[in-house]
Design a protein around this nucleic acid. Structure first.
Length: 571
RNA sequence: UGGGGCGUAGCCAAGCGGUAAGGCAGCGGACUUUGGAUCCGCCAUCCGUAGGUUCGAAUCCUACCGCCCCAGCCA
């Protein structure tokens, strides 16, 4: 059912324990789960947790997992979302084989079951308005009141329900309700709505229906029709479980699925709410659903996160019932772990500073650079080297602090896989800004090591000016500056990180410019990057997936904090 | 004041009556032609609190405290 190798932590969770028990006790012959997205938005990493859980369990227990669209509300659902969801689940690495379903496939059966309930005196057509129904529902602490229409005869209900279906009544004029208990402590039992009138065109059934079933009435029965054994959903549906069971018990359904709930994923520095994500897209705060800063699967993909990293993350965080907020660093760790093993190394310079090697002859040569130190079999590539180079501006300091090991006047460093160079002069413009470095190189250090065994404390990445390919580089950071956006009463949008996307003009080596879309490379010492679909023939566009872990940044921060205290320590 | 859940380290999370796994983050150190990676070490005398049962409790009982969800003709 699936082509990837599961990271399979061997660890279990309470749901897997239940499934294992059910199998051991013979309560289920074959495990059947389902992933039931509503096609009203794009899938995000929270859905990935559910997808990995449902498809993962199916794989581990030799069962199957269905992809079922919960398309019961044509007012919000679109074909665009259906297509995107399918693509995202596939990309994540899962396959539902022939088990693709839609709740709308069951509309006729669901209608018959509603009629069954009416005949049993367990459902009735209510003429109350939405507002009146709300008033009758009571509150969390007070019981509700029965609708005056609750006592209609089965015959009258049947007639009215048929006419609702036939489209005789306007939106909102009537609903079909279950007749359960208006005094129940569980508000879901206070005569829940089963069908509402909605004259809307459905992406799949078109204009065939003018009434649509509610989630509560459609979900469990759809599970039963498909023979789902374990219907796994998030915690907020726990209150609905008694109702889920009520329908299963009161209807002649072909199987008896059971519902289990787990805590949904929350991640720091982002937000996993379709409503908010939709707003970010519509209000233009991001480039779209697939903006590399979005927590959507399409966004993560465009950002360069490998599916394997997301799957690994899902198994790392586990499954439980306690509300939790996972630090985004855990996701980033899982992604770096995969990328470190698989991403080809390349050179790229994001903030170029020119270096002229005064004793290097005209012309150029090629040096061999390993494609991946983690993987010998990745081989090497030839990178052009010449007299004029680009290095990272950040790698030079005219007055280096104590722990800065990189280039400085008079200091020698290694250019990765090439030569040792020593800075002999600093060229500045009228404003005093450094515009060029004059250096000398040691021809005996070709390849990056010296015959006399001396070892510079720093190794820099570089690019030959004549061969470097100009590129637009988009540097991405967290979408929200605050770990818990909108917390402490702050306005959510005020927490957006203004520096979440910084676009710069840089250069990349020729081998990187030809990288295929969808493949993430490492620009040595900078981080992981991937080509964006916005790339044109002339100028490639690279998205920074993640930076490498940066010990120097920590040291630098610590040192500057220390020096800030100095004046106080020594008045 | 109703109903349903949950509380184990900064974060995620095992644990299911026999004396606190693992991961992330952090902190030290080794190694290093990426200040990357890798490796080694440290990081809960204690499991929301208070009682109780027991030879023995994070695990059982009681009470209390705190947090989350539910009053859509959304899912």
């Amino acid at each position: 059912m699936d082509t990837h190798t599961t990271p399979s932590p061997g660890r279990s969770d309470f749901i897997r324990d239940i499934v294992a028990d059910d199998c051991a006790a013979g309560r289920v012959k074959s495990v059947v789960t389902r992933f039931p997205p509503e096609p009203n938005g794009y899938l995000h990493i929270g859905h990935a947790k559910s997808i990995c859980l449902n498809f993962g369990i199916a794989m581990e227990f030799d069962g199957r997992c269905h992809l079922r669209f919960d398309d019961t509300n044509p007012a919000k659902e679109e074909q665009e979302y259906i297509d995107a969801i399918e693509a995202d689940v596939r990309w994540l690495g899962f396959d539902w084989a022939e088990h693709l379903y839609y709740a709308s496939d069951y509309f006729e059966q669901l209608y018959k079951w509603a009629v069954h309930l009416i005949r049993q005196g367990k459902a009735y057509v209510d003429d109350l308005s939405a507002e009146e129904i709300r008033e009758h529902r009571g509150t969390l602490t007070e019981p509700g009141r029965e609708s005056p229409w609750r006592g209609r005869s089965a015959q009258e209900n049947l007639d009215l329900f048929a006419r609702m279906r036939a489209g005789e009544f306007p939106n909102g004029s009537r609903v079909l309700r279950a007749k359960i208990d208006m005094a129940s402590g569980n508000i879901n039992f206070r005569d829940p709505v089963l069908y509402r009138i909605l004259h809307a065109r459905h992406p799949r059934t078109g204009d065939a229906w003018s009434i649509y079933p509610s989630y509560d009435f459609a979900h469990g029965q759809s599970d039963a029709i498909e023979g789902i054994t374990h219907s796994i959903c998030t915690l907020e549906f726990a209150d609905h479980r008694p109702l889920y069971d009520w329908f299963i018990e009161n209807l002649p359904v072909p199987s008896r699925p059971r519902q289990y709930e787990f805590a949904r994923l929350n991640l720091t520095h982002t937000v996993l709410s379709k409503r908010v994500l939709l707003r970010l897209v519509h209000d233009g705060h991001v480039r779209g659903w697939d903006d590399p800063r979005m927590p959507t699967l399409s966004g993560l993909r465009r950002r360069g996160f490998p599916a394997e990293g997301i799957r690994d993350f899902a198994s790392m965080i586990g499954v439980a019932r306690a509300d939790s907020v996972v630090e985004v660093e855990m996701l980033e760790h899982a992604v770096r772990d995969v990328l470190n093993r698989t991403a080809p190394r390349r050179f790229g310079v994001v903030d170029p500073l020119k270096v002229v090697i005064e004793n290097y002859p005209e012309g150029h040569e090629h040096v061999e650079v390993p494609n991946n130190p983690e993987d010998e079999s990745a081989g090497t590539r030839a990178v052009p080297f010449s007299r004029e180079l680009w290095i990272e501006r950040e790698d030079f300091m005219e007055e280096p602090p104590k722990k800065f090991f990189r280039l400085a006047p008079g200091r020698e460093v290694r250019l990765r896989s090439a030569y040792f160079i020593t800075c002999t002069d600093v060229v500045k413009d009228a404003s005093g800004a450094v515009v060029e470095l004059r250096c000398t190189y040691d021809s005996a250090t070709r390849g990056g090591s010296a015959p006399d065994g001396r070892r510079p404390k720093a190794t820099l990445h570089w690019l030959s000016v004549a061969h470097a390919v100009p590129a637009e580089v988009r540097l991405y950071g967290h979408l929200f500056a605050n770990p818990l956006p909108g917390s402490d009463g702050r306005e959510l949008l005020d927490d957006l990180n203004p520096g979440s996307e910084v676009v710069v003009q840089g250069f990349v080596e020729p081998a990187a410019a030809g990288a295929p879309l969808g493949h993430t490379v490492q620009f040595e010492r900078l981080g992981y990057f991937c080509m964006d679909p916005d790339s044109t023939a002339g100028t490639p566009v690279f998205n920074r997936t993640l930076t490498l872990k940066d010990t120097w940044a920590k040291v630098r921060a610590k040192e500057s904090a220390k020096s800030a205290e100095e004046p106080l320590a020594h008045p």
